[in-house]
Amino acid sequence: MKRILVTLLALAVVGAAVGFWLVRPKPLPADALAGLTADVARGEKVFWAAGCASCHADEKAEGDEKLVLKGGQRFPSPFGTFIAPNISTDPEAGIGSWSDLDLANAMMRGVSPDGQHYYPVFPYGSYAKAELQDIVDLRAFLATLPPDPTPNADHEVGFPFNIRLSLGGWKLLFLDADWVVTGDLTEEETRGRYLAEALGHCGECHTPRNALGGMDKARWFAGGPVPAGKGSFPNITPAKLSWSQADIVEYLTSGFTPDYDSAGGHMALVVQNTAKLPPEDRQAIAAYLKRVAPVE
């Protein structure tokens, strides 16, 4: 009897150890960025393509205020309300003291410099597909932006979602860097896929989520209800989005729909980013959208 108990206890300890090992934060190798040199001008393009300001600047920011990444926007969800952190260059309140690798680990692995899991409201599930070169360039551009001393607010998340280690399980289930749209893509469509699936993180809103908050990749870009809010994110697969490529490009440039209404809600902020991309990048996104599998 004692033997059985001891064996069971030993198994439990091993099981727990394996469990903890499985859900541990998994940063990039220390030399992941070796040999990469930063290009600030490219980094600015990455900044707009990745939409950093849409969440990290004040929601009402216009013009240069968009470059003050002081955080504070609130994102309600079924798991609680998340509050965007300060990612300005302030060394205390922001991320001014981070290394390039810290930023790469945050964006691509969802791991903070002190080894904690980030909540996936931060779209590392998409940024995981980014090129390391883009992260290094982005870091160089972020370093040119103004510091802001606004302290971070705590997320308003209750038990059990406040146990960050559980996010390791979420990552095991849902975090992967595989492209959703595969097959024979043109160079333009491939660029569009990179912009839409990785940097632009379109799927974070336009792909519905399952009960655990993972993106339902079988319904990629098929839209769904706004979590803990009113309304819904539209289906932008070819099954529902009947806009021509020229319509999509115009929308991503000026914000005008084919009816000449203007973009609304959070999408208006997204258009402010896409408007700053080179025209060929907006063309590429439109070309990619036409290759997404139609989902009713």
Binding site: G231, S254, G264, A268, L269
Partner: peptide, 16 residues
């Protein structure tokens, strides 16, 4: 587009 959006973003019931 920016001109129209200026009011539509700030003063219109959000539509996604």
């Amino acid at each position: 587009g920016d001109g129209c959006g200026g009011c539509h973003k700030a003063f219109r019931v959000p539509t996604n």
